[in-house]
Design a protein around this nucleic acid. Structure first.
Lengths: 106, 106
DNA sequence: CTGTTATTTCAAGATGTCTTGCAATATGTA
DNA sequence: TACATATTGCAAGACATCTTGAAATAACAG
């Protein structure tokens, strides 16, 4: 990962609708959620939700699998973690204040 | 902080030039760095660097103080940490994989 | 006061992103 | 086949962002 990639990745999260989608998928857990359910929960039209889901999927933040008529989306924590790690370690030189912000009890 | 604010904040980091500025200011430490030095180190025109520094200052990621003819910029780790904390705790429900990504040894 | 250095501001244009509404595709059911 | 459900794709317009270059401001030195 380099600054260009990291910037692209952060840009994928820099949108209220996409943050709401992430929030929903996190709480949906390993079973994931259907595109329609996601759209309803974030108060977006199907088209708009699909647009943002595609953006997140493009960068690997979420993955999709068809299940009958529905598309089931899952969150990908490893991918999310990779951009946080890059940002904290590379851009911020592992600053202790930032690390403490992650809320890990030591 | 809400999703809208967090998205705005993440957007401020979602740019290669701004990530490079953050990287430079982190390494500059508490003494900070002058706008001209920052511009040179991130390979940007004074005008372009000023534009991005203003964007970061607007959100409190950096702060500025005049020192003679120079403007000295400082990084603000607390502010950076607040958006990471919001993202990990609120959007991602404190997921352990994400927390581990912060690189804190436990 | 004049000139020099350091930085910001502004306008213009290029590019990118987001939303909307409608059409198209995929799947399942009668 | 015909129809309903679930989702994606696309085109157009609105809006935001980024870059460039020139002009304006601020601070200092002679």
């Amino acid at each position: 990962m380099n600054d260009e990639q990291a910037a692209h990745f952060l840009g994928a999260l820099a949108n209220p609708t996409r943050l709401a989608i992430v929030r929903h998928l996190v709480r949906a857990g390993p079973e994931g959620a259907a595109a329609g359910a996601i759209a309803a929960s974030v108060d977006a039209t199907p088209s708009r939700a699909s647009f943002h889901l595609a953006a997140l999927a493009e960068l690997g933040v979420v993955s999709a699998e068809r299940q009958s008529r529905s598309m089931i989306y899952h969150i990908n924590f490893d991918r999310l973690g990779s951009v946080l790690r890059y940002f904290i370690e590379e851009c911020c030189a592992g600053n202790p204040v930032l690390r403490a912000s992650c809320g890990v009890r030591c």
